[in-house]
Each structure stands twice: as C-alpha cells, then as structure tokens.
Design a binder for these strands. Structure first.
Length: 716
RNA sequence: GCGCGGUUAGCUCAGUUGGUAGAGCAAUCCGUUUACACCGGAAAGGUCGUAGGUUCGAGUCCUACACCGCGCACCA
C-alpha cells in the first residue's frame, strides 16, 4: 500500500502533479477520445460530441468566487460526458472586456496621478494590452488550479487576429444587409467615463430629490432638473386638457426666463400626462429621451445644454462652464430672486438612471453612433426559443428572455474608448453618414461626396463576445465548427442573460442560421455567508484561491455543487467547505480500509448490497443526465459516508462475506465522485492500480497504458 | 405600472409525475471498540408566508393577498 495513505489526504502535495498528468495525457483534447471507445483521431470522425464554450474570462484581474462556480459546474459536465465516451470539447477563452478593463485600468492610472483623457490613444492601448497579457497568464493558472479539464490547445482571446477579422466582417455583413446603421440618436451618456452605453449598462435607482414648480409665463411647470431648462422654448400640454384650451398649437408667447426674456412656442402632444404636476411641461430634447421624441414628432429645434463632461454650455449664460451639480442651487437662487419659483417639493421620489459602474447620473446626449436593428434579430430568436430549439435551465428564464426580446430596442455598439476592436468605418464630415470600410479604401461619402474620416470608436465588447460560440470554433471553415456547432450547452450567470446569452442567440442565428447552443444553464450569484453581494468596498470578497489553498480544490468544488440549484444564488460559507474537506479525507481513509480488508469471491451478502448500489447509480446517473448536479453530488456523498462507510464497512469488520463487496463498489464510487472531486479520486485511482490486487479479484482492468480515472467509463 | 422569482428546522437550502416533511452546518447528550476525532452513536428541532379552492389525500395543482428580492419601463 502507498505510504501516503497512512497520513491524512494532503491536497497541496497532490493537485499540481495530478493536473500535469491530465494535461500530458491528452484527454483534455477531444481528438484523444476515451481509450475504451476509440483510438485518437485528428479528424474527429467518431462518436457523439459534447461541447461547451467557456464564458471568456475578463482578463483584467483574478478569478473570483463566481468564476470558481463556473469552472466547477462546467468541469463537472465535461468530465461526466467524457466518462460517457463523448467526443468532448471544453474551449477556454479570455475576453479583453472593453469598458470593464478600461475602468480597471483607469483606477490604476488614477492612483499614479494620470488620466486617460491626457494620454495618446496608441500608448494607452499598448499599456492596457500589456496589463491584460500580464493578467492572462495569472488567470490561466488559476483556472488550472480549479481542475478545469479544458482544451488549452484551442484557447482563444477576443483580440486574436482571426477573431478581430471575423468581428469586422460580421459588422460589414450587418451593414450590407442594412442591419447596422449610423444614427443621430439620443444615447445614454456617462459624463464621468465619457462614454455612451446601450440600454443594458444603465442601472435604475430610486432617489428622493427636490421637485421645483417654476413660473413659465402664464404657466407653472414642474421639473426635477432646473439646470437643463436654459434652452426650453417649447411648452407642451395635452390637446384635450380643458385648462389650457385657450392656447393653440404653435402659438407664441413672450415670457421672462432664467437669463432674460424669451419667446416660447405652445406645443400640443398626447404624450403629456394631464394628471401629473400641472399638466404642462417644457422640453429639453437634447437631454431627455421622451422630449427628444416629442421634438421629433413636431420638427422642433434641439439644442445642447450640457457638454460631455457634465458642464453647462454658453447657452447657460452666466452659468456656462459650471458643472451641473454645482449649478443647480445657483440657478434656483436666481429663479427665486426673480420670483419665478412657485414652490418646492422636497420629498419627490423618482427613479433616475445611473451608470452601472460609477453611479453617476446618466446624461442623455444626442450623438452620432452605430446601431444594430434588433427587432428582426429578436424575431428569429423568439421563434427558435418558443419552438424549444433552446432549452433553459431553470426554465423560467425562458419567459424572462421572451419578455426582453419582445420589447427590445436598437443596440448602440459604439464606444468612445481605445480598448476594444476599432469599428471599421468611415464617417462623412458633411452629412454624418457612416460607411463600413474593411480595407480602408473609401475616400468620399457615397451619399453626398463629402470628406470622410475614420471612425475613432471601438465596438461594445459584447458585440464580439456575443458572437463567441461560432467565432471561437473558427466559423465558417474549420473542422471544429463542423464538429461542435451548435454547442451542447451554454453555462453562465443568470445576470448576463441579456448582455450575453440573448445576443449570442440573435447573432448566432443571424450569422450561421443555427442556434449557438441547445441548452442554456444559468447559475446564480455567489454571495458572502450572509447572502450579501460581494464587493471590494464592503470588504466581503471571498477569494477562491485562498479557499482551495486552505481546504483543497476538491472540497471547494463539491461545496459549490451540493445543494446549489441552478438559477439560485449561493451563500458561500467556509463551514460548508470545511465539511467537504473532511469528506475528501474520509474518501482517503475508506480507501485504506478497502485496500486492507477487501476479499474476493461471490456471496449472497455481496449480491444484495451491490443490487442496492445499482439502484443508487441509476438514480444518480438520471440526475447527471438532467443536469441535477446538486442532487447527484449529495446522493453520492450520502451513500459513501452514511451507507458505505457507516454500514457496509462497519459490518464487514464482523462479517467476512461483506468484505467481498468492498472493492467493486468502491471503484464505482470513485468514478461517480470523479467529476466532483477529480484530484483526490485520481490520486486514489493511481494508488489502487499500483497496489495490484490479488489474482482472480475484481481488479482494475486496463487495456490501455493511460490508466487514468479521467478517461474511465462511467459505471452505469 | 408590467414581468420573473422567493417565503420549508437556529442558519443555508433540497423536496424531480400530489401519497403522513429532508440534507449540510450550528446547537445537545454519549462514546476514543485498531480506516478516519478531518471519527462514531443517540436524541432534539418545522401547524412547509396567510386565506380560500380542487382532491380520498397538497409543501407539491388553482385563486387571492402579504412580505422579500430581481428584471423591464421616457412619467416631466
């Protein structure tokens, strides 16, 4: 017997060595196949395939607890299917994570007293690239520490040359099909980051502010944002509002306003809610979506009041150059002194839109940007989802997806940052028309003949990751695409269902005509022990590397799986992990007992306990097939500890017949356990084969020299 | 306002087609009988959010309500 078994199980002395063994075995690559089904085949012409594209990890930091969950769940799926003889591919990837990474890097710059706004874009890009590459190797090592059996020979990065080229081509195709267009529209702008967002990067927040009732000529208007009112020369009311029946659409009125007399124009529009405030409002089309639409309907002027950094423009007169946050009280002071403030409601509760990163108030701005028409894409996606071409786990996410897809709006894919894939386009300086231009050959506007300049913006990072399944498989011409697309399952966090999952479905269908995956498995968030969201500012971040170091990776992994149902968030407690560390040691000691006490031969006792075990195996296998890993793992845990150890082993101390059942059951237990706790089971497997059981015994039958548990056949 | 979840033992949560409630952790008591004290045994702990309904029977299906969470939405 291996002397290691005489001491408690030590993950530190085991895990690195075992991972290396796996990597060198070739079993991470689908070409290798399982030794009991086929010989290696570089053309992949065998068996059924099972594939998962790993959600590309943001290459801007370290693995967090959520990554730990991703790596564990996906590895469980992959190891299980591999043991069932599938041609199994788990493709790892890294994401440049455009804005996210830029924000991380900006914080670093800030600490050094620098700012990206003062930097040469090329230098900034190079710095972030170096930073990202540095992080990449760190992250890859951490993924390996988790035991991830992914195929590193196929690793992709969203900024790989071939990927970038494909992303550019996708844009061109969308443009040629009329699906991507340059639009002068109102976009969500963060004045702090100086970047425009799609509708998803906005976080709604309830706030209590002051609501001001201001005298506007004969009317009283209500506003929560007096600092936007400088350009308000239209006053709008509902056409059916009897209170204002005397005023006609288009009628002009002279009145005294913030910086002197102005001429206001009456506009009648049904968008007005007669019940709200006074039923009269003025509009700021440049900085408000609803106002923009009213202005569009009536062909009204649109004027910019606030610049891109949140400061007032010259239209604000004496307030020009002042930041809006400082300007508000000053403006109210002035309005008061002119007697234009009717009253102030200090307890006005409303919902404001903020930047999801920094919480800064979103300042809508009219900008010329690239948009993708989403309605036709969503229609196709909806058809496929409703037809059941994509199964959601848990299934209520299907409804959530449908709900979102049915209300989808066009996607702004322009980002004003350097860290990303440059949009291959030219913009006409005369008429604003935009043209896709892959080869950099367009020299004049194809509409007005005006002068064109290169678009300086980059793509929203989700535009590239939204195409990840087929891009990472080398669409359209690689054998991987043919062998593994559509992928079997997309496993990711429920929190990015719109950002990522829905967009992958839409873009996948659009580009390839096929859904990118057949199943979406969505896990919940990993929370701290008190079920609070982890955040650096709260100081409650749990680092998975610390935990694997302390308790072993196997303990961490199975703690992430047991009792963790899909879609539900997981409060991660150290106690639970400690419990499974004990379990790893229990397995270790059971092995010692089995090796010391097992006996060969048949008996009635053996027949009975094996029959009972067969039922457990069937039950667990059904759970694995149906992605109920939280049940499968708990059942094998329970069987091993409380049935096999507490009863069968205890009885076998008194009953020699019982000893005949030990080895066959234990070997199968190790196989079933392997996807959950791969390191300790692989280590035991190698020690058991080395111990060469006596002749005639149900020993380990290995025709292949690669005597590894990772490639064993699932015992059911 | 619309949509989606949740509400089960002190804590975190299971409960897959309806058949007299389960796990882990914590807490209690007993036990060091040679695989393991990173252990074993025992006992304790819930009228399954509330109110109705369907059923021979409901944590499980239906309706309403309450509370918590999340998502979507341009109410100035």
């Amino acid at each position: 017997m291996d002397p290691k078994l005489l001491k408690p199980y030590d993950p530190k002395k085991t895990e690195g060595r075992i991972y290396k063994l796996w990597e060198e075995s070739g079993f991470f690559q689908p070409e290798t196949g399982a030794p009991w089904t086929h010989s290696p085949d570089t053309n992949l012409n065998f068996g059924k395939s099972f594939s998962i594209i790993m959600p590309p990890v943001n290459a801007n930091g370290s693995l967090h607890a959520g990554h730990g969950l991703v790596m564990t769940i996906e590895d469980v799926m992959i190891r299980y299917k591999r043991m069932r003889g599938f041609k199994t591919l788990w493709l790892p990837g890294l994401d440049h994570a455009g804005f996210e990474t830029q924000v991380v890097y900006e914080k670093k710059l800030e600490k050094e007293g620098r700012s990206r706004f003062d930097m040469n874009p090329d230098n900034l890009y190079k710095e972030i690239l170096d930073f990202t590459l540095d992080n990449s190797s760190n992250i890859k090592n951490q993924i390996k520490k988790m035991g991830a059996s992914c195929d590193w020979s196929r690793e992709k990065f969203t900024l790989d040359k071939d990927i970038v080229e494909k992303v550019r081509q996708s844009f061109k195709k969308l443009y040629d099909d009329g699906m991507a267009y340059r639009g002068e529209k109102i976009v969500s702008w963060c004045p702090k980051h100086r970047i425009s967002f799609s509708d998803l990067e906005i976080k709604d927040e309830e706030r209590t502010d002051s609501f001001y009732y201001l005298k506007y000529g004969p009317f009283v208007i209500g506003t929560a944002r007096p600092e936007t009112k400088f350009g308000d020369k239209y006053v709008v009311m509902h056409p059916d509002d009897k209170r204002y029946a005397d005023y006609k659409n288009g009628q002009k009125i002279k009145l005294e306003w913030i910086n002197g007399p102005i001429t206001a124009t009456i506009v009648k529009d049904e968008a007005i809610d007669m019940e709200f405030g006074t039923g009269v409002m003025t509009i700021t089309p440049w900085h408000d979506t609803a106002d923009f639409e009213i202005a569009d309907r009536h062909g009204l002027d649109k004027e910019q009041i606030i610049d891109e950094t949140g400061k007032l423009l010259p239209i604000a007169g004496e307030f020009a150059g002042t930041h809006i946050n400082k300007a508000r009280p000053l403006i109210i002071e002035k309005l008061k002194s002119k007697g234009l403030v009717e009253k102030i409601d200090e307890n006005y509760k409303h919902i404001v839109r903020t930047c999801y990163k920094c919480g800064t108030l979103i300042e809508p701005q009219i900008k010329s940007q690239w948009f993708i028409k989403m309605k036709p894409l969503a229609k196709k996606a909806l058809e496929n989802i409703k037809d059941g071409k994509i199964k959601y786990i848990p299934d209520h996410y299907q409804k959530i997806s449908i709900h979102w897809l049915e209300k989808i709006i066009d996607w702004n894919i322009s980002r004003q940052i350097v860290w990303g894939i440059p949009i291959p386009a030219k913009i006409c300086q005369a008429c604003g028309h935009g043209m896709a231009d892959l080869e950099d050959t367009i020299s004049a506007c194809d509409k007005c003949g005006g002068k064109v300049l290169k678009d300086k913006d980059t793509f929203d990072t989700w535009f590239s990751s939204g195409q990840w399944p087929y891009l990472s498989l080398g669409y359209p011409d690689q054998k991987d695409y043919a062998a593994f697309y559509p992928t079997s399952i997309m496993e990711t966090g429920g929190d990015i269902i719109f950002f990522w999952v829905s967009r992958m479905i839409m873009l996948g269908l659009y580009m390839t005509g096929k859904v990118p995956f057949n199943i979406v498995y969505l896990h919940g968030m990993v929370l701290d022990p008190k079920a609070q969201k982890m955040s650096k500012s709260k100081g409650n971040v749990i680092d998975p590397m610390t935990l694997t170091e302390k308790y072993g990776t196997d303990a961490f992994r199975i703690a992430m799986i047991v009792g963790n149902t899909p879609g539900t968030s997981l409060a991660l407690s150290e106690d639970k992990i400690r419990g499974y560390k004990n379990f790893a040691n229990k397995i270790w000691n059971i092995t010692r007992f089995v090796l010391e006490n097992q006996k060969s031969g048949e008996s009635e006792t053996k027949k009975n306990v094996i029959e009972e075990f067969e039922n457990i195996k069937k039950d667990i296998t059904a759970d694995m097939e149906n992605y109920r890993f939280y049940l499968a793992s708990e059942k094998i845990y329970h069987y091993i500890w409380h049935k096999f150890a507490d009863e069968i082993i205890e009885q076998s101390k008194k009953d020699d017949d019982m000893k005949k059942s030990l080895l066959p059951i234990w070997q199968d237990c190790l196989k079933i356990l392997h996807p959950f706790t791969p390191f300790v089971t692989e280590e035991i497997w190698s020690m058991m084969s080395a111990s060469s059981p006596p002749a005639g015994q149900a020993g380990i039958d290995r025709p292949d020299q690669k005597n590894l548990l990772i490639a064993e056949k699932w015992p059911c």
